[in-house]
Design a protein around this nucleic acid. Sequence first.
DNA 1: TGGGGTCAG
DNA 2: ACTTCTGACCCCA
Length: 593
Amino acid sequence: MFEAANPALKSLPLGVQQKQIIVTCNYEARRRGLRKLQLIREAKEMCPELVVVNGENLSKFRDASKELYKFLESFTWNRKVERLGMDEVWLDVTDIVAYNEGMVRCGNGNAWLCLDRDDPMKGFGFDAGTIAGEKYPKSETNRMDVEGCPEPELVRRLLLASHLATHIRHKLEEEKGYTATVGISTNKLLSKLAGNMHKPKNQTTLMPPYSSRDGQEGNPQVFMDGHAIGKIPGIGFKLAQKLRNHILGVTADINDPSLYGDNKDPITVKDVRTYPGMGPQLLDRLLGGPGSEKRLGAKVWGLLNGIDDSEVQRAKRVPTQISIEDSYGRLETVSEVKKELLILTTSLIHRMHIDLFEDDDDDLAGKRKKWLAYPKTIRLSTRPRNIEGSISHNVYMSKRISRSAPLPGFVFSLKERVDAIVVKLVNETLMSMFRRLHGSKGWNLSLMNVCVTNMVETAGDDTPGRGRDIGRMFRHQEEALKAWRVEDRDVPPETPNTTMSMSEEARKLGEEKAYVAKGEDSILKAEPSAGGDATRGLSSSAASADMTEVDYEDGGEWFAEECDEGELCHICGAVMPSFAMAAHNRFHIVGTD
DNA sequence: TGGGGTCAG
DNA sequence: ACTTCTGACCCCA
């Protein structure tokens, strides 16, 4: 992002600072030995010419992330574009690939990939005899013998997805100035891991065969097996530790996290997968216990085998929570706390206006402002500083504690000044929550976080199932898939699909982005899941959105236009004129029966 | 629903 | 000195 704004930075080592730490840095800085989350002092020592920019305010990153995401969404037909953090994205391009797959003779010559079902001229030409970009495993030749290989349909789909990925990467660089790295495969897990290869600005297609035959593992298994166990998305620090302990046997050293840096993890996916007795049941025993996820063993076993059934999610209209936090060297008095709460709360109210309060351009009368969602709950979290020498050492470390309360309706006021709202919220709500967390003395905090959550969405035109183009989309997809159904009769249901996902790091620096193209290939799967999803989307949005739509929309607008003082609904937190409250309450009573 | 844990970037 | 500033999802009572 910084590089895109100022290309001269690309050749300089650049780091983004939060407090005393370089939270991320560009490739030039990494080339010189810098790493993420390194102390400023060490970084400067290692690289005196390091250019440092302040990254404590994330607004610019949020804006760039949203812009990037919107750009990528414009390429999709199904709007399945899922963000992971601010700089990674998955695209499910199954439908685009399926549509084009029927019209392209892969394996020879020039072909056309159509990007718009309504305009055959919109698209790009490509060489249907090659996979675009890098492949896993590497191979000598780029020419494809599509018909001669064991999984020709899958090869065709991944080939199309690879060219689509290249096209999108080029457009992204031309039009937005962001480079990206992409992985292309049949699910989110595999495409994400493939996207880690060939950084900073290439792409990797995980090549067929995907199934094992005559004792040979498929490529996804070989690919997964080579990864350190802790590198698998979904297997974090705790799970990896438990798995290592079981494989290696429990010794004191094994519990030292410093032994397992990036490349030092001695335990691979293959070590775990092939351990005697390994399977979902043993994994459940190893990883389960109070508090752990249901069916965790089955899920992890799937990951070890390259299996991931999770769908690429469409972006939600509003976040599920918004929080602001800061860390402190010392925070020991009530007045210090109050001062910091005022600062945090001011940022939080601003964030609410940015993320929850947008133009309603669907209104016939023109643009109006309205709340997209009302958070019902406010939460205050703190992190008490480690008490020196107290408690054994490893057990009571830097955990957060929190208290929550209903969010008062006055924060939605559009008339009152933000600073007045902030003062009221801190004095009337947050300070008493703080007292519930800590007494008036005897604490020292290293962090405070203020969060609003429990969003109640107002109705919007983005609600799945509402858009006029949704029905049309599915009809189109049906047609595009007809040919496939016939041809795929004898293909087992496990046959993969074609999907694409992308990730970018514009967020941090524009150092690179990765996008990952994921290919779905199971048509038999696509049919029921498309039908099921469509039905679910329609019914659930009708049920939940209709309930709140009239209330909140009207309440918000009346308040915005006519009211100086709103009255708070204690059920949902909406604010509206007093005369509306009786009808509003009736609505709740009827609606919640 | 409140409080906490894990995972991710 | 497992740190920064988040956000998503899961579990239990």
